[in-house]
Computed example of a mutant assay.
Amino acid sequence: MRNICVIGGSRYFGKHLVELEREAGNKVTVINRGSTPRLPGTTRLVADRDDERQLREALGARTFDVVFDQVAYTPEQAATARRVFEGRTGRYVMTSTMEVYDPATFAALPTGPEGPLLAEDRLDLAALPPAREPSRAGDAPDPATAYAEGKRRAEAVLLTDPAFDTVTVRTAHVLGGGSADFTGRLAHYVERIAAGRPVDIHADPRPTSFVHHEEIARFLHWTGSGTFTGPVNAASHGALTVTELCDLIAAGTGRRPRYRTVPGGGAASPFSFDRSYAMDNGRAARLGFGFGRVEDWLPGAAAEARADALVRTG
């Protein structure tokens, strides 16, 4: 039996991860702010991870074999975790995002025509420029840029001179789960296509990467048991453009998707991108993990979302 800590993990695929750890016979401690019920079979510690003193007090003298960090969004949070968990764990797994590769949020990754899938070494964390301080109140980055930049810098804190064996899992867009999917992005497409409403897309949409919510939980669980370190991409095989995504969703509705092209710079539906940054999952494969194919699990996930929509609408 191993001693596992999960920071966050109270919803969506984090709950699946906790379930997998429990099913493996491990002792699981979940750290959150106490706003959700305690997960069955776990020990819950209530603490604000941004408050280092409170986090240390909640942990007491506890140590862990593996820490899964589901909610590290900023370099400050990563630095706090690095200090607090140094000497408490031998392995630290941070859930990051494919958005770290988005050229629209990082000038060092130029936007260009569709190219090869991006491997982990495409992003040089050691070459990140100094963080830019807003010069005035209205100069703050947009939420998407702030999210991607926060994840890049959080990775850099944990992977530069690491205090423990560290893995940063760059997760593709997570789909599936019906009502459990709090993002509602798959439901957006399922409901629009079923109702015959148009989907807003770019004139030349580029492919992106996806992963099933249960698959990413299995990958995180598997990663916790490994010995490798560094960044690793987590994505199902088969990058899709938004129209390819809609075609797979529509296959179960008997309707053809309708599209509306947005003007240059306009806001499109989720997963419509005018730049390509789909991920190469080759490192995970070489390490021994076999991802499935999007085309195999997406129809089932779409059916689950349609069933959930029927329940909600009566």
Rank of each mutant, 00 (worst) to 15 (best):
L20Q: 12
R132V: 15
I249R: 02
L17Y: 03
G112L: 10
G177T: 08
P103R: 07
C5R: 05
V100Q: 06
A108C: 04
G14K: 06
G288R: 09
A309C: 01
V6K: 15
M279Y: 06
H188E: 02
V262L: 09
V100E: 05
T63N: 01
S209E: 10
F271I: 04
A148D: 01
F182P: 01
A307W: 14
A195E: 07
L118P: 02
Y147S: 05
Y73M: 02
R286T: 09
S10R: 07
F106T: 07
G292H: 07
T223K: 06
G282V: 09
I4D: 11
A131E: 15
V46L: 08
V262K: 08
V100D: 03
N32G: 05
A127R: 13
F164M: 14
E191R: 06
A268N: 12
L159K: 01
G34W: 14
D102G: 12
D247A: 12
F85V: 03
R2N: 15
N26A: 13
T29E: 04
F106Q: 10
G224P: 12
A131M: 15
G265A: 08
H173L: 01
P198M: 07
Q54Y: 00
D308H: 15
A234E: 12
P299N: 11
T43V: 15
A140M: 13
F68R: 03
V84S: 04
V169A: 13
A303F: 04
T227I: 11
R218P: 09
F228M: 13
Y259F: 13
E133A: 14
R306H: 15
R260H: 14
H202N: 12
D121I: 09
P40E: 11
V211W: 09
A217R: 11
D247L: 07
A187M: 04
R255W: 13
D274P: 08
D165S: 11
Q70P: 03
F273V: 12
A267W: 02
A235S: 14
V211K: 08
T36A: 02
L45M: 03
A156R: 15
P116R: 05
G138K: 04
A156I: 11
A108Q: 13
L39P: 02
R256A: 09
L245G: 08
R258H: 06
A81P: 06
H188A: 01
G196V: 07
A180N: 04
A172P: 14
T111H: 13
R258I: 01
C5P: 02
E99T: 11
E214R: 15
G290C: 00
Q70D: 07
D204T: 04
